[in-house]
């Protein structure tokens, strides 16, 4: 008899539990950003490519420029207002010694992009010129700006969609970058 009533309580509680679960599920949905897709490339090596340098199109870079040390790969274009907003922050990061490679994504013209770098400053060690966006497609880029964190083995560790700012760097990208740098430096010290 006692067991029977216990079972009854369990059955009666089920709708309440289902309701609570649904509430939590939907509440989380309210605060999640559906445009933030995790990259399918995380944990995989960067795709192979051949791209010209933005300053000198006779110079061709391959995926090897994204190997050998931890770095950021920043996807940008002059048509992208958010890229302009984050540009000054990238300048600051570069001044602190963060290694950043640029991927100019389907820009209006190369001259415009070069002009942007000359007037706003150039935080990039190397800048790849992806005129038709086909390499960006291999990276799974679906907008600009996007920033990939790449380790010394040339594997994608993390992808951030949207601008890099103080909050994003201090909470998300910075700690991961510093961790990679520590591993890289300790490996370099004891070869």
């Amino acid at each position: 008899m006692a067991q029977r009533s216990k079972l009854r309580w369990v059955i009666l509680a089920l709708p309440l539990l289902a309701f609570l679960w649904l509430t939590i599920f939907l509440l989380r949905g309210l605060f999640s950003d559906p445009t933030e897709l995790s990259s399918a490339l995380v944990g995989k090596p960067v795709p192979q490519f051949e791209l010209p340098d933005i300053y000198d199109t006779t110079k061709v870079h391959t995926e090897e420029v994204l190997q050998g040390r931890p770095m950021l790969l920043n996807v940008w274009a002059t048509w992208c207002p958010t890229c302009r907003a984050e540009h000054e922050y990238l300048n600051q990061l570069a001044a602190q010694g963060v290694y950043i490679v640029g991927l100019n994504y389907k820009d209006d013209s190369r001259a415009k992009a070069v002009n942007w770098l000359n007037t706003l400053g150039d935080p990039y060690q190397i800048n790849l010129f992806d005129e038709r966006g086909m390499v960006a497609l291999d990276f799974g880029v679906y907008g600009a700006p996007e920033t990939f964190l790449i380790n010394a083995q040339g594997e994608v560790v993390y992808r951030h969609v949207g601008d890099v700012n103080d909050r994003v760097w201090n909470n998300v990208l910075g700690p991961q970058y510093n961790e990679l740098m520590q591993a890289y430096e300790s490996a370099g010290a004891t070869p």
């Binding site: 897709l37 995790s38 990259s39 399918a40 490339l41 799974g140 679906y142």
Partner: peptide, 8 residues
């Protein structure tokens, strides 16, 4: 497509 953009 899935290799680049995920199951999405």
């Amino acid at each position: 497509m899935v290799a680049r953009y995920g199951d999405f």
